Every structure is written in C-alpha cells, then in structure tokens.
Simulated scan of single mutants.
Amino acid sequence: MFERFTASARSAVVDAQAEAREVGDRRIEPAHLLGALARQGAGDGLLARHGITYEAVRREIARVGDGALDAEALASLGVDLDAVRARAEATFGDGALERAGRRGGHLRFTRASKAVLENALRVTVAGRGREIGALQVLASVLRVDDPRTEAVLVAVCDDPAALRADVERAVAGRAA
C-alpha cells in the first residue's frame, strides 16, 4: 500500500514518527500524523484557514500526552500533574517530563493510526484516485475515532466540524 502514497503523504507518515519521538511518546498516533500534516501545510491551506498551526498542534500533543502520565490516576493519589509538570519545566526547561520518556529505535503505529492509513486508501479509491495524497491522509485523520486526536483538534481548531466538511469537499474535488 505504501507504494501508492505520494511524496507528501510518505513524508507525513515518516514525520509522524519524529513527532511522536520529539514529545516522548512510545507509539505513533493519529495526532502525530495531524502534527506532521500541519508542519507540511497539507490541504492547500485548509488547516491554516481553520486556525490550525503546527506550533499549536505540537503544543497540544505534548500537553494532552499519550496517557503515560495519567492525570486522573495521579490526582486520585493526591498528585497534581499540572503542578508537577510546571515545577519540572521551571527546573529543567520546557517539555522536561516528555523528554524523560524518549527512546531510540523504531516506533510502532497504534491501531488507530493503522486505521487512518487504511482509510486513506479507501478515500482514494472512492474518489477514483490512484495515489494516496496528504489530503486523503488528513481526511482519514479527521475521521478516526481517537480521543487524543479529538482533544488536540478541539483545542487548536476554530470549528472542527467545518474543517471536516471542507476537507471532505476538497477530497471530493469540490472547492472548499
């Protein structure tokens, strides 16, 4: 399937691993694909028109976390994760807790990320296309049922429903 990806779509998939690694995540999630697509400016300005910047996506990915540090579980023990994070960053710099979890080597895709890539193929075939482009990957990221991706999207997008509709129109070949 990867041979059907355009250069920009391949780049987004590769860059998603870098996104995950840079925030200290152990797996590649759809939110990392969104970050990589935002870094590329995928969708011919659609993301920017909806207020989405790479910096905002990246910040939210780090803030939301991958669940390794579960704020609710820690709170039940009397630990305020936001306070711990603030103190660690004051002492060791921005992203100190995320950097602590970084590892080298290959990162695996989560089930949701695999679903995004599989759905990108379906989006392409439904549109009678032959190549999977960044726009099809973006459409698939926006369709996936993933709580972290949704939290990031809600935090960085002025209107997620309107973004989804604009991306669907663009994928279908109609003006967004």
Rank of each mutant, 00 (worst) to 15 (best):
V84Q: 05
G173F: 06
A7D: 15
T53Q: 11
V116G: 00
G41W: 01
R148G: 12
D166Y: 10
D25T: 06
A96C: 02
V141K: 05
V125Q: 13
A18L: 13
R59C: 02
V125Y: 12
A100Q: 11
R103P: 01
R122H: 12
P160M: 06
A48H: 11
P147M: 07
Y54F: 15
A62R: 09
D25K: 06
P160A: 05
F109N: 01
H50Y: 03
R49G: 15
Q17V: 12
D82Y: 03
V14G: 02
E89A: 08
A75T: 13
R27N: 08
A162R: 14
V13S: 00
A162G: 14
D15M: 04
G133K: 01
A7M: 12
L142D: 08
D15P: 00
R148S: 07
V167Y: 05
R85F: 10
L33C: 03
L46V: 09
Q136M: 09
L107E: 02
A162K: 11
Q136L: 03
G24A: 11
G51L: 04
G43T: 04
S8D: 14
V152Q: 00
V137W: 00
G41S: 06
R26P: 08
R174K: 08
A90K: 07
L135E: 12
E168M: 07
L34C: 10
A48F: 07
G41I: 01
A176W: 06
E29I: 00
E60T: 02
R49Q: 10
A36G: 07
A96K: 00
V64S: 01
A16K: 01
Q17T: 14
R21Y: 05
A115M: 02
T149S: 13
L69H: 10
L107M: 04
V156T: 08
P160L: 09
V167C: 08
R130G: 11
L81W: 09
T6V: 05
L37F: 06
R128Q: 14
A42R: 06
R128M: 12
L135W: 07
A18G: 11
P147E: 14
L34S: 08
A88F: 11
P160K: 06
A161P: 10
A9F: 09
R63I: 05
A18P: 02
M1C: 11
A9V: 08
L37V: 05
D66L: 03
E19M: 09
A62F: 00
V167M: 05
E60F: 01
Q40W: 07
L97D: 10
G35M: 00
A9T: 09
R164N: 07
L69G: 11
V84H: 04
T149W: 01
L135P: 07
T124K: 04
G173E: 04
L37P: 04
R174T: 09
T124C: 12
D25V: 08
V84D: 06
D80I: 05
D15W: 02
V57P: 00
L138R: 06
L153H: 03
A48E: 15
D82S: 13
G43Y: 02
A12I: 04
V171S: 04
V137E: 00
D159N: 15
V116Y: 02
L163Y: 10
